[in-house]
């Protein structure tokens, strides 16, 4: 089909020519059948760049039906792959990275000046010549949101069963082992050995799982801003599930759980820092549970204590503070219960907060997702397609 003359890199225009009848094979190879591991050693989001370079060529030859057909086939194939892998974090992350990269490419090379400010002059030469794909950008943006929601769903389903035992029940501070409120001393140890009982996870297991999610998203070249939003959403879930359990379980409302919880939340903040995720607003989502931990630990006796609690616990509603104080269980016979008059003191303080009416947090609350425009520094004409992808029917132009 093609005279195989080795051309110098500079001769390439960053386009890929294909025959219309090869479109189905192209989409099958690059979308339907691809495994993330096939392209793991190459440029992140390679499928997105290859597809865009094919779109560029169809635009260059002024073939509107070829552009429309490839984009539609790609979008439908991505949707199918996601449906088939709707419990697979790796595949979902891979397609979120590639779909959002394809969307960024359609913007970066649209010819719209707003998207060209960071382009090199070579990249500007590579802008689409004939077609305005703004409507397809909208479809890809909608698709990216759908994929993001699937990613959150898969990740939440994985961590959900770990949260309570990792955050509230496992003993990550060795010196606190065995320090439990009266009557509950052996609860979690007996639970671990119960046949058929719930599985027990440590905080380290939960952090390890978060680390795996993070590593996968990084490997796929997902934009750091999107990765940050995923982490923030998962931290919200961890916070809400933990707080809701505190609000319902007497056995965890104790000084030692407060200590444990403070330690656990600090470990999670540490994980954010170690992974450059502290700016993602994820840490702020832990505020209610951090304050609940402090509430379990502070003195709860005098009017001054009540005042201090109210100015400390700004992320908790009065209803939540009162509930935790009511459930608070002394560690031993020397520690006193919280008195009724102290709780009344808290309840009767002038309300300066706008409290939500419900006691429990919405574990399913989702923050609106944003895909900020992230142009790429890659020069399309330098892109190398590995032979292992079996795309030799594409012709570099």
């Amino acid at each position: 089909r093609q005279v195989t003359v080795q051309r110098k890199e500079k001769d390439f225009e960053g386009m890929l020519e294909y025959h219309k009848e090869d479109e189905a094979l192209l989409v099958k190879t690059l979308v339907t059948d691809i495994r993330p591991s096939t392209v793991s050693a190459t440029v992140p989001c390679l499928p997105a760049y290859i597809l865009f370079m094919c779109i560029r060529h169809a635009d260059y030859i002024n073939d509107d039906s070829k552009v429309e057909s490839l984009l539609t086939a790609t979008i439908n194939a991505v949707k199918k792959v996601l449906k088939k892998n709707n419990e697979d974090f790796e595949m979902t992350s891979f397609w979120l990275a590639n779909t959002s990269r394809l969307l960024h490419c359609l913007k970066q090379y649209s010819g719209d000046e707003a998207f060209m400010t960071q382009n090199t002059s070579k990249q500007n030469e590579h802008c689409l010549k004939n077609f305005d794909l703004a409507e397809y950008r909208q479809v890809l943006s909608d698709l990216s949101i759908q994929i993001y929601q699937q990613l959150i769903k898969v990740a939440e389903a994985t961590i959900q069963p770990m949260i309570v035992s990792a955050m509230l029940e496992s003993e990550s501070i060795p010196s606190l082992a065995g320090v439990k409120p009266m009557g509950y001393r052996h609860r979690s140890s007996s639970m671990d050995t119960d046949a058929g009982g719930p599985a027990s996870y440590t905080l380290q297991a939960l952090i390890r799982q978060l680390g795996q999610f993070h590593a996968v998203m990084q490997e796929h070249g997902l934009d750091p801003e999107i990765t940050g939003q995923v982490v923030r959403q998962l931290f919200h879930c961890i916070n809400a599930v933990t707080l809701n359990n505190l609000l319902l379980r007497k056995d965890v409302c104790s000084w030692s759980t407060g200590m444990q919880l403070r330690y656990n939340t600090s470990q999670m903040e540490e994980w954010l820092r170690a992974n450059n995720l502290y700016q993602s607003k994820a840490a702020a989502t832990l505020e209610p549970v951090i304050q609940a931990a402090q509430l379990l630990q502070v003195k709860k006796k005098t009017t001054q204590d009540a005042e201090a609690i109210c100015s400390l616990c700004t992320a908790l509603s009065t209803q939540q503070i009162v509930k935790i104080l009511n459930l608070y269980t002394p560690l031993n016979e020397f520690e006193e219960r919280v008195t009724v008059s102290f709780i009344r003191n808290i309840q009767n303080r002038p309300q300066q907060r706008s409290d939500p009416p419900q006691l429990l947090m919405d574990t399913k609350h989702t923050f609106p997702v944003l895909f900020p425009y992230t142009p790429s520094a890659l020069s399309l004409e330098t892109l190398h397609i590995p032979a292992s992808l079996c795309l030799d029917f594409l012709n570099r132009v």
Partner: peptide
């Protein structure tokens, strides 16, 4: 800088419309 000549807007169906078209195509071809 490339000459800025107007590009032709390609109309795209919405994501939901694309899915509908895709489903009916699949139904047609057994």
């Amino acid at each position: 800088r490339p000459p800025s000549r107007p590009r032709i807007l390609l109309k795209a169906p919405t994501l939901a419309e694309m899915e509908e078209m895709n489903i009916s195509e699949e139904e047609e071809s057994p």
